[in-house]
Design a binder for these strands. Sequence first.
DNA 1: AGTATTTGCTCAGCAGGCTTACTATTTGCT
DNA 2: AGCAAATAGTAAGCCTGCTGAGCAAATACT
Lengths: 137, 137
Amino acid sequence: MAEWPTGRLLSTASRLVEHAWLEALDELGLSHAGLIALHLLGEEPTNQTDLAARARVENQTMSRTLDRLEREGYIARERDARDRRRHIITRTAAGAAAWESARTLEADVFPEIADPQGLRNSLLELIHAGTARRWQP
Amino acid sequence: MAEWPTGRLLSTASRLVEHAWLEALDELGLSHAGLIALHLLGEEPTNQTDLAARARVENQTMSRTLDRLEREGYIARERDARDRRRHIITRTAAGAAAWESARTLEADVFPEIADPQGLRNSLLELIHAGTARRWQP
DNA sequence: AGTATTTGCTCAGCAGGCTTACTATTTGCT
DNA sequence: AGCAAATAGTAAGCCTGCTGAGCAAATACT
């Protein structure tokens, strides 16, 4: 496996790491995608396209993630009166509470490694490169 | 984004990086999962459970990936005469050819970063940790 | 020998990525 | 004012992960 291309190591590591907190999140009735959306939403209501861009996912993906959050009662959608194409998303009390309890989970669950800061830097570099290709044409 | 938990950076980076080669692979009629399977298969026919374990995915996932490779004519399944529960997977000529042309693609497409070796080491650490939890109970 | 457990694989169903295609609204240009 | 282009969101369909269930073959135990 030491000979695998780096990209493959990356996706494998990503999948394996994700398992750990999925179990934990499950108990809160949240998914990883949902947690990210709640996090990005914060206390500032905003629209779906904005959330999608900040999460680096396509619009349609965010739409479905929000469907589920809405179904679970963690967010509410409401048409923007000013621009009626838009949906304004707001966190419900339940959503805020769920987010609050999941707040530190991602960090807590992440395995200890030798050079966490180096890893973060590399990942940020990669995200930067990938973002340039997709989100700033 | 510099404040995102490392796990989230990891999955985001993974997704973004994967895009680059998905486009390239698409022209060969291969998917990333399929490429991994072909790679692991190599020239040695083997069974599905073995492939799944080495790819670090569940059995069922590998089963479906092989379904598609079989449909496209890149692999062949055949029952093992010795142990009739098993399916022996072999690469077809087309499969070997496809793999050969995709061989270096993953590496070629990967963005340049400051410390590639450091990244690889961190990822291997993470995979090691994650593997321990799931594949060696 | 006969039953119970384990093993290899498939099926069904869900989530989260993606693309392509569509509707509704807004904006912008003539 | 009116029409074309851009934007916000949804729908449908594909792939790849996962879990949970189930079947058939092989192995282990009594």
